[in-house]
Design a protein around this nucleic acid. Structure first.
Length: 569
DNA sequence: GCCGTTTTCGGCCCGACTGTTTTCAGTCG
């Protein structure tokens, strides 16, 4: 049983208990345990890890026992019983925005409603309005919520939301009443997918801002409209929440709205321990504000150093901060080159020279041209002979540069049996060999793992590109044992790519952290197919930061000389 | 259900908005 499966079961347990009306702190305990497990960098099902379960944060003897039962037998008696509860099917209702555990239970108990379809019909027929606490408006909202759930249930890739949220920020900035404005929420934490965009502004005239916000041209629907907080859905179908506070509260509000929720709860609990109340307006002792203007003040009020947004997931960052062990995360300024870009020699849009110029404009010291070597026609993969010609061309281009180097590389296919799509003599002639799976994604885990491990063991290979093959929102990662892949990388001194292509971000943050723990080096590369794509490096850096990656963990922070030396050895 | 250099019992983060209510419960983040 995988961590993900255990997580799903714990969440489901929490939801059923919630609907049953259990003690909310108990249901939250299950959620917290689920969150802990979902962010582990190791699988619980390996034997040596099982003893540690009870020591994990938020997992005590009760839940630890349940997890052990799941690992041991693949089933959990407690959960099997819960699933028989008449309330178990109602967890589907919780996916409907505006419906929580209380209303889910209410419509079931009073009207016998068991499915979303029945709920929709009851709302349409005006049967909900007679229930205590519900009215006509609630009926309408539930109908709307059901439609919204069906339409917008997905999360959006970070790179889809990011520019659109920035555009809204720019629009709002034009208002003279706005003194400060920033993104917050999962967008600021740079999660790989985003459900909605949070924006925070400082103003003395919040109502004016609200008015302007809900009348932006991008707005398709106004979800909520209050004095200091409003929510809209854009024509691109994602929700934006805007909150306005006073300047004295900006730090506290930034911290609060950036989250994560789990991180906030921990910080506020630390505050409670010190007799402080922390909310979005500031840090208070009794009624006296003692901090809140900056995030640094908020952290410092609970004796912590500043914690970067990307780390705020309650995945150990608070403990690390308390011990003074926070990582010094990688930043854009450390990146000295891009180790995976394409040109019009294969499926890219620009020439070698154009890509090189663009990389140099970014201040890079090098760029590796890694066009496809593939028997798949669609990418115009290079044959061995064309690789030789490209090497000559790159040498020519390099004569035009000083203090900048175009590296000869390839993105060679890993065939289903683990062989590469270029001969080893050709591969040896290159500065850098990036190998990747581009076909037969559906191999069983054992075969896929063996396939990739064979490529890692191939002495010509330096880097494994987009190691899990996921396309966010479109394709699940292929079935591969990343522990074995990483162990092979460690044993053979090979590098894993963090592909910054916005729909990939592969490695994920969790895998980055695992790689770091195992001492494996990362290459943050864009896989750019045109010059503009070089900018995507920022999404890769953000994902790396979420994985606690420091400059020393990243090969493309090395100088050219060091990098070439590293690749040769 | 978890957790503890104040605690092994009694706490557990905090507030805005909505809709249905006359003071609040439910939902959300």
């Amino acid at each position: 049983m995988t961590n993900q499966e255990i997580t799903d079961i714990l969440v489901h347990i929490s939801q059923i208990l919630d609907i049953q009306g259990e003690n909310p702190f108990k249901t939250r305990a299950y959620l917290r345990a689920a969150q802990t497990i979902s962010s582990l960098t190791f699988q619980l099902n390996s034997l040596e890890n099982r003893k540690e379960i009870g020591k994990l944060p938020g997992i005590g003897s009760g839940i630890a026992k349940k997890i052990e039962e799941l690992l041991e037998t693949g089933k959990l008696g407690y959960y099997e019983d819960l699933k028989k509860s008449k309330y178990a099917p109602l967890t589907e209702f919780l996916k409907i925005p505006g419906i929580g555990p209380k209303h889910a239970r209410l419509v079931h108990d009073k009207l016998g409603i068991k499915t979303v379809e029945e709920l929709e019909k009851a709302a349409a027929d005006g049967k909900l309005r007679v229930l205590p606490g519900l009215g006509e408006k609630a009926e309408k909202n539930i109908l709307q919520g059901i439609q919204q759930m069906r339409k917008y249930k997905e999360r959006f890739p970070l790179a889809f939301i990011y520019p659109r949220a920035m555009a809204i920020l720019e629009d709002l900035k034009k208002l003279k009443e706005i003194k400060k404005i920033t993104i917050a929420g999962s967008l600021r934490r740079m999660r790989d997918t985003i459900a909605d965009a949070d924006v925070l502004a400082v103003s003395d005239n919040p109502e004016k801002i609200m008015e302007a916000f809900i009348n932006l041209p991008q707005v398709a629907q106004v979800v909520a409209h209050g004095h200091t907080k409003s929510s809209i859905v854009t024509k691109d179908r994602f929700q934006v929440d805007l909150r306005v506070v006073g300047a004295e509260s900006f730090g506290a509000a930034s911290h609060y709205f950036t989250g994560s929720k789990a991180h906030n709860i921990r910080i506020r609990s630390l505050g409670v321990d010190k007799g402080l109340k922390i909310n979005e307006y500031g840090v208070f002792r009794k009624d006296k504000r003692i901090a809140g203007k900056t995030e640094e003040e908020v952290f410092s009020s609970v004796d912590l150093p500043y914690i970067p947004p990307e780390l705020r997931e309650d995945r150990g960052e608070i403990e690390a901060a308390q011990k003074g062990n926070l990582p010094s995360l990688v930043e854009a300024r450390y990146i000295k080159g891009d180790l995976h870009v394409h040109t019009n020699w294969s499926d890219g849009n620009n020439t070698i020279e154009e890509m090189a110029m663009a990389a140099r404009r970014k201040g890079y010291h090098y760029v590796a041209i890694c066009d496809h070597a593939s028997s798949m026609g669609i990418v115009h993969g290079l044959s061995a002979e064309r690789v030789q010609r490209q090497i000559i061309e790159i040498r020519k281009v390099n004569k035009n540069f000083k203090n900048f180097r175009v590296l000869c590389g390839t993105e060679v296919d890993i065939k289903p049996d683990g062989e590469l799509d270029l001969d080893s003599d050709t591969l040896r002639a290159l500065d850098i060999v990036v190998a990747a799976v581009h076909s037969k994604f559906t191999q069983p885990e054992k075969e896929m793992t063996r396939r990739i491990v064979r490529a890692i063991e191939n002495p010509s290979v330096h880097i494994i590109a987009h190691p899990t093959g996921r396309i966010i929102g479109k394709r699940e990662p292929y079935e591969v044992d990343m522990d074995k892949v990483m162990d092979a990388c460690k044993a053979n001194g090979k590098i894993l790519e963090l592909n910054a292509y916005p729909e990939r971000l592969d490695l994920s943050d969790i895998h980055c952290r695992k790689a770091k723990e195992k001492g494996i080096k990362i290459a943050i590369s864009t896989d750019a197919h045109m010059t503009d794509h070089l900018e995507w490096i920022s999404f890769g850096i953000a994902t790396a930061r979420r994985g606690w990656i420091e400059p020393k963990d990243v090969v493309n922070t090395m100088t050219l000389a060091k990098l070439l030396n590293y690749l040769r050895h």
